[in-house]
Design a protein around this nucleic acid. Structure first.
Lengths: 146, 146
DNA sequence: ATAAACACTTGTATTATGCAAGCGAACGCA
DNA sequence: TGCGTTCGCTTGCATAATACAAGTGTTTAT
């Protein structure tokens, strides 16, 4: 077992409450990959640039499931693979991700790099971008009959 | 020394970059207190409901200073006290805090409690709220000649 | 002069993380 | 049908971060 302390609740403050669930070094990056990067499998999540360890990934996937932010189904094309996808609560974190991204774009512009493809997707503004992102996920869910 | 690893950079992704700086269990709570709770002193920050340890608070204040999110001046009324306040970059995290708060309000409504005073301040919407918050900080800064 | 307050620091125990290796079930191919 | 590979993890161990209690030096109030 990787960790015992299952999102201990520190206070009833809305900010603290959200951080109890997603305020660690990895959870939001996993959610980013599932939400914005079109990733849905364990192996894809492992391969992200930040280099998450397999045990930590496994632990975070389970915790996020326990918290109701994501769900799993067996891959229809294979009995050994699985498909991870966000629930409504998980998808709604797009606003947090966009706020973080905008903050970095403003205050850490020298440290970040946004690939051309992503820049193009975001060109029409945050509202249009998140709408498109959610539409893509809806198409994916339809395809896999989630 | 509390920690060696000074915000190691994991990737150039804007989300990851922001999390490298404020993606731990405590930084955003300190920023919440400085931004929304009108706190400016070490002791006040220590007394928050979440119960941060003094060594961790000390460490986070230094790291946030190193990252350019906050600054310190000696307290004009006392040689032993200090005043902590956010820089422009620190204040701009209000959008992240509001996104987190709104997420909790939507998806964790049973776990959170918003005091009446705060609820009243937020009643006119997020834009008006953040404007008022920043105006208050500006008044404080003027008073202390920051 | 003394005691309390303040902003920390130090020491130590506990917990979380990172890394490498391993494991069983499923799969791909011969 | 056997045989190496892939997948989604788990395990063991070293290192790092955090929590908790106690202490330190300076300032301040009485």
């Amino acid at each position: 077992m990787v960790s015992k302390n299952e999102h201990a609740i520190r206070s009833s403050c809305p900010v603290a409450c959200a951080l109890d669930i997603i305020g660690d070094h990895w959870s939001l990056l996993v959610i980013r990959d599932l939400l914005l990067m079109g990733k849905h499998e364990y192996k894809e999540l492992l391969e992200s640039d930040e280099g998450i360890s397999s045990n930590i990934l496994s632990d975070r996937l389970r915790k996020l499931q326990d918290s109701g932010l994501l769900d799993v189904i067996p891959h229809p094309e294979s009995n050994k693979r699985k498909l991870y996808f966000l629930t409504a609560a998980g998808k709604d974190l797009i606003h947090v991700l966009l706020a973080l991204g905008r903050w970095s774009a403003t205050h850490r512009s020298d440290a970040i790099f946004i690939p051309e493809e992503m820049r193009a997707r975001m060109a029409k503004g945050a509202a249009a971008f998140s709408k498109e992102v959610l539409r893509e996920l809806a198409r994916w869910e339809e395809k896999y009959e989630v």
